[in-house]
Amino acid sequence: MKRQVFREESIISGYRHPRSSAMDCVLSSFQMNNETINIWTHFLPTWYFVWRFLALCSTMNFLNDSYTWPLLVYMLLICIYPFTSSCAHTFSSMSAESRHICYFFDYGALSLYSLGCAISYGYYVIPDCWVNSWLHQHFVLIAIGNSLFCTSMSCYSRFVELQFPKRSKALRTGAFVVPFIFDTTPLFYRVLSCFWGGGNPSDALSSHCCHLLFAFLTCFLFTAHLPERLAPGRFDYIGHSHQLFHVSAVVGTHFQMEGVIADMTSRRAWLQLHGSMPSFLGTIGALTVSLALNLAVIGIFSAPLLWKTRPSSSQQHACKEQ
């Protein structure tokens, strides 16, 4: 039964040993298996985002300029989420329990990334007519709740995966769709207003539109399991949907980053005049609180798995006798 935890739909071969050591897992990233490209399609982009972050650090005063704090939170999280995903794919074959826990952290990093999107959107991307509205004032607080919902629901979905695979997939998809819809509501409004009003899209809005296209493609690839569903076994190593899902997500994040930076710089004067300046509590403080709460959720879901892996007292006694 445990071996089924390691199986993916329409992926026939290329699986690593389900009881690999940590060193075996690391070495497997340099060998061709069905996780190799999954690992590298998020590990390499991590360093691209780190490079972009360091470049911004040299031009912006993240320490003293509170207007830059939402961007600081966002950039930290787009560096963390692909790295966490890469680690999850690397070490997920150590045991059935470790596989679940690895992906718990992956889901937690993605939910925090959704919070980073909400913080940056709430301060830089928010439509002019929404500034200082009730939604604007509570945008980050609601996003914290969404991140907890995302982590809790996606972690829970792994416990019903074997018995109810379709329900598990639906729960996990919904867990990420809810914060995405909430985070991008201001952006959808701006895009629709631009096209309905006949305005010319700015550079920021063009980047945001590219991000939305890749976001929808990412969701499609995650749920459709194409192309491997059409030819099981032919895309086991290269070209299966999860690899394409990773590439699409990273490219979408790149365009999102460009849009956020463009909005931040081009709208600074107007936002500082008409809106309130970002606060420590609403940016770095919100990230800190959400990080602690999400780690607590991961700990709650991991506890029974960790307890399960502990040897029983009878086993310990037998080992001592031997």
Rank of each mutant, 00 (worst) to 15 (best):
Q4S: 15
S152R: 05
C129R: 14
I80T: 12
V50L: 09
F235Q: 01
Y48N: 02
A204R: 01
F62D: 02
I78L: 09
L110D: 06
Y123R: 05
M94I: 08
N33P: 00
S152Y: 12
W196R: 13
I284A: 14
T59I: 09
I37T: 04
S152A: 15
G299Y: 08
P70N: 09
S86E: 04
M75V: 00
I11M: 00
I261Y: 08
F280G: 01
L217V: 14
A292Y: 08
I238D: 02
A118Y: 08
S98V: 12
Y103W: 13
G233C: 03
H89I: 01
L291Y: 14
R229D: 11
L71V: 15
T184W: 15
Y121A: 06
A286N: 11
F214H: 14
H225L: 00
H246F: 02
H17E: 14
H17F: 13
W51L: 10
G116W: 02
T185E: 05
H42Y: 08
G116N: 05
F6T: 04
S29D: 01
P179T: 07
S207V: 01
Y121P: 06
G259H: 07
V50D: 00
W196K: 12
T288M: 08
Q163I: 02
L293I: 07
V131F: 08
P186R: 12
W47V: 03
S152W: 08
L72Y: 15
E35W: 00
K169F: 09
S10I: 00
H225P: 00
A118R: 04
S147W: 03
K166D: 14
S314G: 09
M1L: 11
P179Y: 07
K308M: 06
V191H: 12
A286T: 05
F220I: 02
I12G: 01
S202E: 07
W134F: 13
L27E: 11
Q163S: 15
F6R: 02
L221N: 06
S21L: 01
R7V: 05
S10N: 15
G252N: 10
S207M: 11
N34I: 00
L305C: 06
S193Y: 13
S120H: 05
L293V: 07
